[in-house]
């Protein structure tokens, strides 16, 4: 690959000047984001450097155990991210369990589907394939799951009088929450539909850009991107579906009562 240009630390230092624009905006409008910006930038650089080193090491091992360990950490982290920033989240561990459990299912499903059925690397658990695919599936599914759960709880809160009126008439919980569920599903699916519609025209997806910059033929890069898009779309849809219905069950009980007492608002949420 003669076209691949390796980046030196000096190149990256030069590029980091661009962050100063963000700092400038923050200072000009007194947004007070300078500290957050500095920390977030440092955090990103350190996180990416670390994962680069870890990945290099794990790729050299090609050990199913190490691959599994890193995959588990990724899933747990994604599960936490999917829930943490919710305005009103389901109290206790059940919401994290729902987020992590859903991501575990869709991540496993999509990754095994990809390496087992489509790409067939040798060995099938080759971390070079498994981990990036899992990462992309998790990153996108967690957005969908977070949006749908957030929509579910905020809509149920806003529409609680209507939902309870329906329950009082003897409607089962799935029926009383039908419009709420539908809205949550739709909101969760929207980003991936937008991404698919815009890709290629508005945006070149990051994975494809990366491959092209690293010297891969654009058509080859496109093929992988299409595969990834299918994987992401399918797993997001599955994740949104599982998380939404799981969420509906968690904010109601088996006597078909609306249990908004199980929600905590962001401010009141206990740490951790």
């Amino acid at each position: 690959m003669s076209s691949y240009v390796s980046l030196s630390p000096a190149d990256l230092a030069l590029a980091s000047i661009l962050i100063l624009v963000n700092a400038g905006v923050s200072m000009a409008f007194r947004l007070g984001l300078e500290r957050t910006l500095l920390l977030t930038t440092l955090r990103m650089v350190v996180q990416l450097l670390l994962i680069g080193l870890v990945l290099r090491w794990i790729f050299q091992q090609t050990s199913p155990l190490w691959t599994l360990l890193l995959a588990s950490i990724m899933i747990a982290a994604a599960g936490r991210e999917a829930i943490t920033r919710q305005e009103r989240r389901i109290a206790g561990w059940s919401s994290y369990g729902l987020g992590t459990g859903t991501l575990l299912m869709v991540g496993t499903f999509a990754t095994i589907f990809a390496v087992g059925g489509v790409i067939s690397p040798d060995p099938w658990y080759a971390p070079r394939y498994v981990l990036p695919i899992l990462g992309m599936v998790l990153g996108n599914s967690l957005t969908g799951i977070a949006l749908s759960l957030d929509t579910l709880t905020s809509t149920a809160w806003r529409e609680r009088a209507a939902i309870e009126a329906r329950l009082a008439l003897g409607q089962p919980r799935l029926m009383a929450l039908r419009e709420t569920t539908r809205r949550a599903l739709k909101t969760g699916m929207t980003p991936i539909l937008n991404a698919m519609a815009a890709s290629g025209i508005v945006s070149l997806p990051g994975m494809m850009t990366g491959q092209i910059l690293a010297g891969v033929d654009p058509v080859e890069a496109t093929k992988y991107q299409v595969l990834i898009m299918f994987l992401i779309a399918g797993s997001t849809a599955l994740g949104v579906l599982l998380a939404t219905f799981g969420g509906v069950l968690l904010i109601t009980d088996d006597r078909h009562r609306l249990r908004l007492d199980r929600l905590v608002t962001k401010e009141k949420a206990p740490a951790g």
Partner: peptide, 12 residues
């Protein structure tokens, strides 16, 4: 629950 609430009706 549904059967109960069809007979015992709460009006808010």
């Amino acid at each position: 629950a549904a059967q109960w609430r069809r007979q015992v009706r709460f009006a808010a």
